[in-house]
């Protein structure tokens, strides 16, 4: 199932999927990486993992995506996986307002456990459930702007927005990284050349306290 084409890449980015249980994180992951949707998937216990490579600005970016369990009880275990992540998809369910109310708590989780400069995208999933829409797009967009998050609505069921969501966050991470590297280049006349693997697991170490 792992395609060997994946092996060739310019950059490796670690991204986490977070949000309340049942909002559709695992299905977003399976839709993106395997184009599969499961109405009756199993709940995630601990973490799951998958990879997929995409093209962005002429580079091959391999996304290493960690799908975490949503239930509060698992936070102690799942938050360990935030380390080294350069991106986070913070997912809520557009048909359940409670999952949107909890977004603030998830942001705090990230502040406490993730890198300070992690790129965060707010994802309103299950956009296919139009007749049950409980979180208005404007409300979510306003919240995203206020907290400086990217925002998108998706449906893992009918695929709407799923590829775009991952594509956008990965591109954003890439741009940020190149900008940062450029700055570093100027400072040290060094930096990362194309073809170099950035192992984000052995990344910059923990920077706590910053705001997302």
């Amino acid at each position: 199932m792992a395609t060997r084409v994946d092996e060739e890449y310019d950059y490796l980015f670690k991204v986490v999927l977070i949000g309340d249980s049942g909002v559709g994180k695992s299905n977003l992951l399976s839709r993106f990486t395997r184009n599969e949707f499961n109405l009756e998937s199993k709940s995630t216990i601990g973490v799951e993992f998958a990879t997929k490579s995409i093209q962005a600005e002429g580079k091959t970016i391999k996304a290493q995506i960690w799908d975490t369990a949503g239930q509060e009880r698992y936070r102690a275990i799942t938050s360990a996986y935030y380390r080294g992540a350069v991106g986070a998809l913070l997912v809520y369910d557009i048909s359940k307002h409670g999952t949107f109310d909890n977004v603030e708590r998830w942001l705090k989780e990230l502040r406490d456990h993730a890198e300070a400069n992690i790129v965060v995208m707010l994802v309103g999933n299950k956009s296919d459930l139009k007749q049950f829409k409980a979180v208005e797009t404007d409300e979510a967009m306003g919240f995203a702007e206020q907290h400086n998050l990217a925002f998108i609505e998706t449906s893992a069921l009918d695929s709407t927005g799923v590829d775009t969501a991952f594509q956008r966050i990965l591109t954003e991470i890439y741009r940020l990284m190149s900008r940062r590297n450029l700055a570093a280049d100027e400072a040290q006349a060094g930096g990362i050349k194309a073809g170099t693997t950035i192992d984000l697991n052995k990344g910059t170490g923990e920077k706590k306290g910053g705001c997302c």
Partner: peptide, 18 residues
């Protein structure tokens, strides 16, 4: 709420549990 989220995701491959 959590139980209700999990019930339909219990042993998905076995119809009896559904």
């Amino acid at each position: 709420r959590q139980i209700l989220v999990d019930l339909p995701r219990t042993a998905p491959s076995i119809p009896l549990f559904h």
